Lab assay of single mutants.
Amino acid sequence: DVEPGKFYKGVVTRIEKYGAFINLNEQVRGLLRPRDMISLRLENLNVGDEIIVQAIDVRPEKREIDFKYIP
């Protein structure tokens, strides 16, 4: 289970104008929005990159997770 405030290693699987989709595993995916990136820009991410993200909002009923990147 993903818990708000905890850090997780994930893989960038898709990049859109509104953010990057990060997979923690095959069943768990969330969104990293540009506003939640500190010292990292969306255009510097590539599909396949491994990054450490912090879960900031977890909505299991909608199967949605918002992430934050903190270097």
Rank of each mutant, 00 (worst) to 15 (best):
T13M: 09
R35Y: 09
P4F: 10
L24P: 01
M37V: 04
G5L: 09
G5V: 03
G19K: 03
T13S: 13
K68G: 14
E61M: 10
E61P: 07
P60M: 10
P4V: 15
I22H: 01
D1A: 14
L45R: 01
V58K: 05
N23W: 10
Y18L: 05
G19M: 04
I51D: 00
V47W: 06
L32F: 01
G30L: 03
V28N: 07
A20R: 00
T13W: 09
Y8R: 00
Q54N: 04
F21S: 03
S39E: 15
Q27R: 14
K9N: 09
F67H: 01
L40E: 05
E61A: 13
V11H: 10
D1L: 14
N46R: 15
P34T: 11
Y8L: 03
I65E: 01
G5C: 08
L24Y: 02
K9F: 11
D66K: 09
E43D: 13
R14H: 10
T13A: 10
F21L: 10
R41Y: 11
R33E: 01
I52A: 05
G48L: 06
P71S: 10
L40G: 06
L32I: 04
I51K: 00
K9L: 13
R41I: 08
L24I: 13
K9S: 10
I38L: 11
I52W: 14
F7M: 09
I65N: 03
K68S: 13
F67N: 00
P60T: 10
L31P: 01
V58Q: 04
G48S: 05
R33S: 04
G10V: 05
F21N: 02
I65W: 09
D36F: 07
P4H: 09
L32W: 04
R59F: 05
A55L: 06
R59D: 08
D1R: 15
P71V: 07
E64R: 09
K62F: 11
E16W: 10
E26H: 15
S39V: 11
E3R: 13
N44Q: 15
K17R: 14
V2L: 09
A20C: 07
V53K: 00
R33T: 03
K62V: 12
L40C: 07
F7K: 07
V2M: 07
A55D: 00
I15K: 08
A55K: 03
S39F: 10
R59K: 07
I52E: 07
L24G: 01
M37N: 06
K17H: 13
I15N: 00
D49W: 06
P4E: 12
I51R: 01
R41Q: 12
P34Q: 13
S39G: 15
I70V: 14
V53Y: 00
L45S: 01
E16Y: 12
L24F: 03
F67T: 01
K68R: 15
K6M: 11
L31Q: 02
K9R: 15
I38W: 11
K17Y: 14
I38V: 13
I51L: 13
N25Q: 07
F21G: 01
R63I: 07
L42A: 03
L24C: 04
V58G: 04
N44C: 10
R29F: 13
L45G: 00
F21W: 15
Q27K: 15
E3I: 15
R35L: 08
G5F: 10
V28Y: 10
P71Y: 07
I56C: 06
A55C: 12
D36H: 13
T13L: 05
I22W: 02
N23E: 12
K9Q: 10
D66E: 06
I15E: 00
R59G: 04
Y8K: 00
G10P: 00
L32P: 01
P60L: 11
R41D: 09
P60W: 13
R33P: 01
P60Q: 10
R33Q: 05
E3H: 13
L42Q: 03
S39A: 14
F21C: 05
V11I: 15
E3Y: 14
E64S: 08
E50A: 14
P71R: 07
L32C: 02
V28R: 06
P34G: 10
I65V: 10
P71H: 10
Q54R: 06
I52V: 14
D66A: 09
V12A: 01
V2G: 02
Q27L: 14
R41G: 10
I38P: 07
L32R: 01
G10S: 02
G5D: 06
E43Q: 11
I70Q: 11
D1N: 15
G48K: 05
D49L: 08
A20P: 00
G10E: 01
V12C: 03
R41E: 11
L42N: 03
Y8Q: 01
R41M: 12
L40F: 07
E43M: 09
E64L: 14
I65P: 02
Q27D: 14
I15W: 03
K9W: 14
V12Q: 00
I52Y: 11
L32N: 00
R29N: 08
P71E: 09
P4K: 15
N46V: 14
D49E: 08
E26Y: 14
E16H: 10
K68D: 02
V2K: 03
Q27M: 13
D66I: 12
E43F: 10
V58I: 11
I70Y: 12
L40M: 11
K6W: 08
D66Y: 13
V11C: 07
G48R: 05
V47I: 14
R41H: 09
Q27S: 14
D57A: 15
D49T: 08
R33Y: 02
R14N: 06
G19R: 04
V2T: 05
K17N: 13
P4N: 10
T13E: 07
I51V: 09
S39I: 10
R59V: 05
I15Q: 01
P4S: 11
I51E: 00
G5E: 05
N46F: 15
V53H: 00
P4G: 07
N46G: 11
R14S: 12
S39P: 15
G48A: 04
R63Y: 13
I15L: 10
K17A: 13
V58W: 08
L32D: 01
P4D: 06
G19H: 03
A55V: 15
L42T: 04
I56S: 07
P71L: 06
A20V: 09
A20E: 00
P60H: 13
R33W: 02
E43Y: 12
D66Q: 08
D49I: 06
F67M: 04
K6N: 09
E16A: 13
I65L: 09
G10M: 04
Y18F: 13
V58R: 05
R63T: 08
R63E: 13
P60C: 07
N46D: 10
V28C: 08
V2Q: 02
L31I: 09
L40W: 05
Y8V: 03
I70P: 04
G48P: 01
I22A: 00
I52D: 05
A20G: 03
P60F: 09
A20S: 03
R35S: 10
I70R: 08
L45H: 00
Y18A: 06
Y18M: 06
K62I: 10
V53L: 04
Y8C: 02
L32K: 00
V47L: 13
Y69W: 08
G10R: 01
R35D: 09
P34H: 08
K68M: 12
E3Q: 13
G30A: 03
R35I: 09
K68I: 07
I52T: 12
I70L: 13
Y69S: 03
I51T: 01
I22V: 12
G30C: 03
I70F: 13
R63H: 14
F67C: 03
R35N: 11
G5I: 03
E61L: 10
E50D: 11
Y18D: 05
S39W: 11
F67E: 01
Y69T: 04
I38C: 09
R41T: 15
